[in-house]
Design a binder for these strands. Structure first.
Lengths: 334, 334
DNA sequence: ATCGTTGAATGCAACGTTGCAATACCCGGC
DNA sequence: GCCGGGTATTGCAACGTTGCATTCAACGAT
């Protein structure tokens, strides 16, 4: 079934090398020879063996994308953009789901996804920023959505502190005074939730408003169910908030759901701001006000970083920290 | 940086072959030798080169997953399950997005994703069932969510006609009489929408209810925006429906959004049933009634099919048509 | 003491491709 | 007619791994 260069060469009556030249198009081949070879290729349905090519070239043309979970809208949208951008660069993307498992993340970093990949884009979840910085990655690495001590890898992220500050400040600006937060993750060493909490507190401090710990709800994961639970906890608490800043849109949608269940009007009784700008938020009732990171730019710049390291390992610039823009999108919930 | 079997062998003072035996664990190696080799492996940080292995074995351990778009919740959830199931089988998944492009689908079928993959799971979108059946795939193939003429590939799908019939019959059962449909795609040769439309009409025929073409809205894609447009068209039409069967949850959520905008009560004024059982539907307001295909089973059986063909090409059973179960999940919208 | 059997380790070759260097050829200029 | 310079084509080797066959040593059974 599968034919090799050798078969094509035999059929066209030329050497293996010449067929290779035709396929790659690099060396010069006489037009008539080229045509004869091309015909043989078509007749035999020849397709180059990528394993052999990779072995020869030392590169596979495959990059890894490691994310906590594919089914979450944010990561789904991001993965889609990354796959598109990779296709544009003739790269293939393999996907790993870490499911928030620290060991899985460690293994990926240390082994580079089993050597198949030329580079790895990873959105760390369970791992410590310090551990991330200390690990010597097996392949060129791009870290998504994290910030922390400078390590051996490039990082691409929004300015989480500033973004959370803006979101909270917006709630202050529309007259809210009891502003709660949903989405802290003290059990994780992960930096993102911490940074958003920091921005939240900073904004409230500047406005002279309190941020009691009872108004800052932790979550186990970032799903709608977690947001729903957290919202229920807030509403059952001593002081009912008049606004909530959720650290992700999924959390916000879960919270919105509970607000409806309890008969609260949104945004009149309680305002909600999310983070991520996922598609669902545009069609919720009411549509979700949210912080929108520039996802296409995250995808593009991550791959650009990786391309630089994989294709020009010579001029090794020091690890970069790329900050992509974000903006607050006002819709119906705040 | 990267060490080979040869380096490990030199360090441990054994032959390359022995190191290979230690790594693979297949042949018998003396305990002390094994330990010495293991130490050398650890010290050098040896990792086997997968390209070389693949070249030798004629297999890559990589399978392709080709779907229209990763960011859509249904495909995101399904892709997540497939990646998990593949990890369990020590396979790696590369993702291709066809973006509904017929040429992209054709290319994938004919070339098997460029020979890197051992097999391909594809959810066809733009391609004709007839063309699908006629194409000789480059690698073992599993088709998702389609049914049609028997071809060279296995198929895994729910019984779309029966499922659509059930959904529609449910709307009839709760007393609705002007039941519209959203999601026809006459411009595509794709079979799924056609099958669901067939089930919808069959149920209405059986109930003696009309299904005028004005009540059956076509869409360009299956996004919320398309559902919203279709719903607006229905509500602006001559007869306002008292129920809508949307061929996907995303369409249903877009429709729900417009119903809210127009001040309609759901389900009192208009009932809505979707299809896919995506996570968002559980948290919409009200939660979405939907047809739930058994997604874990789709993932598992697709990979099982592929495993059978890739690992036992000898006993080639004829192409199978696997029907996975579905059930109607009643929530708030109908 | 000898033979057969098993366990441990090894060498060779091959998977399909491409870089390198070499060869064969043709053409125009002296 | 010879030579230099380019074009077209080729053979060899190597990428890192594993299947196969082989070798060698040790041991128990005869």
């Amino acid at each position: 079934m599968s034919s090799r260069l050798k078969d094509v060469a035999a059929r066209a009556g030329v050497s293996v090398r010449t067929v290779s030249n035709v396929v790659s198009g690099s060396a010069s081949v006489a037009p008539e020879t080229r045509q004869r070879v091309q015909e043989a290729i078509d007749e035999l349905g020849y397709r180059p063996n990528l394993a052999a090519r990779s072995l020869r070239a030392g590169r596979t043309g495959i990059i890894g994308l490691a994310i906590p979970e594919l089914h979450s809208p944010y990561f789904g949208e991001l993965a889609g953009l990354l796959v598109d951008e990779a296709q544009r660069r003739s790269w293939t993307v393999v996907i790993d789901q870490t499911r928030g498992d620290a060991d899985a993340e460690r293994r990926l970093l240390a082994q580079g996804g089993g050597r198949v990949v030329d580079g790895l884009i990873i959105s760390p979840w369970a791992l410590d920023p310090a551990e991330l910085a200390a690990t010597a990655p097996a392949v060129p690495l791009v870290l998504l959505g994290e910030r922390g001590p400078q390590g051996a890898a490039d990082r691409v992220a929004v300015d989480n502190v500033a973004a959370a500050d803006e979101a909270t400040t917006h709630l202050v600006g529309i007259g809210r005074r009891r502003i709660a937060a949903i989405g802290l993750q003290p059990q994780l060493r992960n930096g993102t939730a911490r940074l958003r909490a920091e921005g939240y507190r900073r904004a409230l401090d500047r406005a002279g408003l309190p941020h009691p710990s009872a108004a800052q709800r932790s979550v186990a994961a970032l799903h709608r169910a977690d947001g729903a639970r957290a919202m229920a906890g807030l509403l059952d608490g001593p002081t009912e908030p008049d606004a909530v800043f959720a650290f992700s849109d999924e959390l916000a949608l879960g919270a919105l759901h509970v607000a409806h269940e309890r008969g609260l009007r949104v945004p009149e009784d309680i305002a909600i701001v999310g983070f991520d700008d996922i598609e669902d938020g545009r069609y919720s009732h009411p549509p979700l006000t949210t912080v929108s990171p520039d996802k296409p730019q995250i995808a593009e710049r991550s791959l650009q970083c990786l391309a630089d390291r994989v294709y020009s390992p010579g001029n090794a610039v020091p690890p970069q920290e790329l900050v992509v823009p974000h903006r607050l999108v006002r819709r119906g919930t705040a």
